[in-house]
Amino acid sequence: MARPLAVLTLSDDERQTLTTWASRPKSTQRLAKRARIVLACAEGLENKQVAARLRVCTATVGTWRRRFVERRLEGLADEPRPGAPRTITDADVERVVTRTLETKPKDATHWSTRGLAREAGLSQSTVGRIWRAFGLKPHKAETFKLSTDPFFVEKVRDVVGLYMSPPERAIVPCVDEKSQVQALDRTQPLLPMTTGQAERHTHDSARNETTSLFAALNVATGEVVGKCHRRHRHQEFLKFLDEIDARVPKGPGVEIHLVLDNYATHKTPAVKRWFLRHPEYHLHFTPTSSSWLNLVERFFAQITEKRIRRGVFRSVAALEAAIREYLERHNASPRPFVWTADADLILKRIKRVCERTSDSGH
């Protein structure tokens, strides 16, 4: 014979509480499911019927029916698990987090796990666990700079609009210069990578001359027009504009929207006259101190990481040859960098930084 079901009846207060647990978004899924099981059992359904409705096993329904009958609402909570009793209290955790965020040691700019452990009377591993749980990393610091350009919002919307929704039959080149690229040679030969051992080179280097890479990134195709010059003046910039003009596709109705930063060589009288002679070019300047808005900076980061930083160049000519080779290979199968953050998202993030800066007390 089957075991008789425990009689389950609910008071009005219990039914209201269970209904709240079952439907409140902030309830844990475990508690919400247990509340739904008890509510279904209170309708007079058998365990198999409740299990089929809620897609759980019959034994689960029986467990929570019995727990509720024996201990009512308290029976739906998780029972304490076996193990050593907790030694770190909530007050200890709060003390560590508060001291990390609001104070500094007298002899340093930031806390270490050992230093804070001595101050708080806890172990170093405990402080480390609390920091990891709350995402605290006092040993790290990042940099930022807010633009003071009075037309910051307008320029952000202008440039980002070109990236995400360019005009019809428009070509959008992002132009900038990677200046003072130095040809670095190592003082001793490299030790190549071997199994279990990374490539090694000397910490010091022999410094040779420098070059400047002028580059124009086509936003739509990812193709890059690049040229190296030993000097970084408006004369070299004019030569590079002629290079862009010779390489950019021409046609009826085609407009060229050039994204530039506010470097002085981009605004000299000679450069302004060049653009007056080429009315098909439309200039879009990024805000001051906002070079991250120029998409060609992403290409500069790529060529630095892949070809320049770990390269060994005995002369500036060797460096320029390596840059030209990289450009040829890049343009053989170019891939565009896709800009995904719209202007509203960028401005909201900057607003949050401004609010945090104004509330920091510095």
Rank of each mutant, 00 (worst) to 15 (best):
E70V: 14
E70Q: 15
E70L: 15
R71I: 12
R72Q: 10
R72N: 07
L73R: 04
G75T: 08
G75C: 10
A77R: 12
D78H: 13
D78S: 14
D78Y: 04
P80K: 07
P80I: 07
G83V: 07
A84E: 14
A84Y: 09
A84H: 13
A84S: 12
R86G: 08
R86Q: 15
R86N: 09
T87F: 11
T87N: 11
T87E: 15
T89F: 14
T89N: 08
D90G: 11
D90E: 12
D92P: 12
D92E: 13
D92C: 13
D92R: 05
V93L: 08
R95M: 14
R95L: 14
V96C: 04
V96G: 01
V97E: 07
T98N: 12
R99S: 07
R99Y: 06
L101Y: 02
E102N: 12
E102T: 10
T103G: 07
T103K: 07
T103C: 06
T103W: 00
K104G: 02
P105E: 02
K106D: 15
A108T: 07
A108G: 04
A108F: 06
T109Q: 11
H110A: 09
W111Q: 06
T113I: 13
R114I: 12
R114M: 14
L116W: 06
L116N: 00
R118V: 15
R118D: 10
R118C: 11
R118M: 15
E119C: 15
E119N: 09
A120L: 15
A120N: 09
A120Y: 09
G121F: 12
L122N: 03
S123P: 14
S123A: 14
S123H: 13
S123W: 02
S123T: 12
S123R: 10
Q124E: 13
S125Q: 14
S125A: 15
T126G: 06
V127Y: 01
V127Q: 08
R129E: 08
R129N: 12
I130W: 01
W131R: 11
W131S: 01
R132T: 02
R132V: 00
A133M: 10
F134C: 05
K137C: 04
K137H: 05
H139D: 06
H139S: 06
H139R: 05
K140T: 13
A141K: 10
E142V: 10
E142D: 14
K145N: 06
L146I: 11
S147A: 03
S147L: 05
T148S: 07
D149R: 01
D149M: 02
D149I: 03
P150Q: 03
P150R: 01
F151A: 13
F152T: 01
F152Y: 11
V153S: 04
V153D: 07
K155D: 02
V156W: 01
R157F: 03
D158Q: 08
V159M: 02
V159W: 01
V159T: 01
V160D: 02
G161V: 05
G161I: 02
G161R: 02
G161L: 06
G161N: 03
G161F: 00
L162Q: 03
L162D: 00
L162C: 03
L162Y: 00
L162W: 00
Y163M: 03
M164I: 09
P166H: 10
P166I: 06
P166Y: 03
E168T: 08
R169V: 03
R169D: 08
A170V: 04
A170W: 07
A170K: 04
I171P: 01
